[in-house]
């Protein structure tokens, strides 16, 4: 268990509470956690994919206006639910796996709560990417190459599908439209 792994689990809670803004930081901390645990070739590729999954959505969304889907009144409830799930998983994990902190699983649980409890497409996209980050961390910590490959593929699929959906659903920012017009004029 490293400090970065614990921090990553806490940052995943931030994604549940605040959405896409926490995703780049989560990606960064996740990458550090991977580099700190596991064997070199897998950790390096894992860190690369985690960084990509953390940073790319922000870059895509910078071209579009914010998602205006109204959320429910119980905004604080998902965080508590995620926290409770994490504590339960921590207890179950410590009993079954001899004291190992299942950080990846906690991140997956937080992402799941974000997908299930939020209505906005962008928030759900952030939740799915958080899930993928958790799977990657878990696979790297366990040293499972196949699961890591499938998780990376899944993360990339979610990234592309989310970007396609955001392109179709969200209106463009005025600045991006202006830039496009200028390029057309040139």
């Amino acid at each position: 268990m490293t400090l970065a792994a614990v921090l990553a689990a806490l940052l995943a809670l931030g994604v549940v509470a605040r959405g896409m803004g926490f995703l780049p930081v989560l990606g960064l901390v996740d990458a550090v956690a991977m580099l700190a645990s596991g064997t070199p070739p897998l950790t390096q590729s894992g860190a690369g994919v985690a960084l990509l999954l953390g940073i790319a959505p922000g870059l895509v969304l910078s071209r579009y206006q914010a998602d205006a889907t109204p959320e429910g009144q119980q905004a604080a409830l998902p965080s508590f639910l995620a926290l409770a799930l994490m504590v339960l998983l921590l207890l179950a994990g410590s009993r079954v796996q001899g004291g190992q902190f299942p950080a990846g699983l906690c991140i997956v649980a937080a992402g799941l709560v974000s997908v299930a409890c939020r209505r906005g497409m962008v928030w759900q996209w952030a939740g799915l990417l958080t899930c993928a980050q958790g799977v990657l961390l878990s696979a790297v910590m366990a040293g499972q190459v196949m699961a890591f490959g499938a998780g990376a593929l899944g993360g990339l699929v979610v990234l592309v599908l989310g970007a396609l959906c955001a392109q179709r659903v969200l209106p463009r920012r005025a600045r991006a439209l202006k830039g496009e017009k200028r390029r057309n004029e040139v």
Binding site: G104, L105, V108, G111, L112, L128, C131, A132, G134, V135, S138, A139, M141, A142, Q144, A147, A150, G151, G154
Partner: peptide, 8 residues
């Protein structure tokens, strides 16, 4: 993703 997490 959940099934993959279980496999890890």
């Amino acid at each position: 993703l959940l099934a993959l997490a279980g496999l890890t």
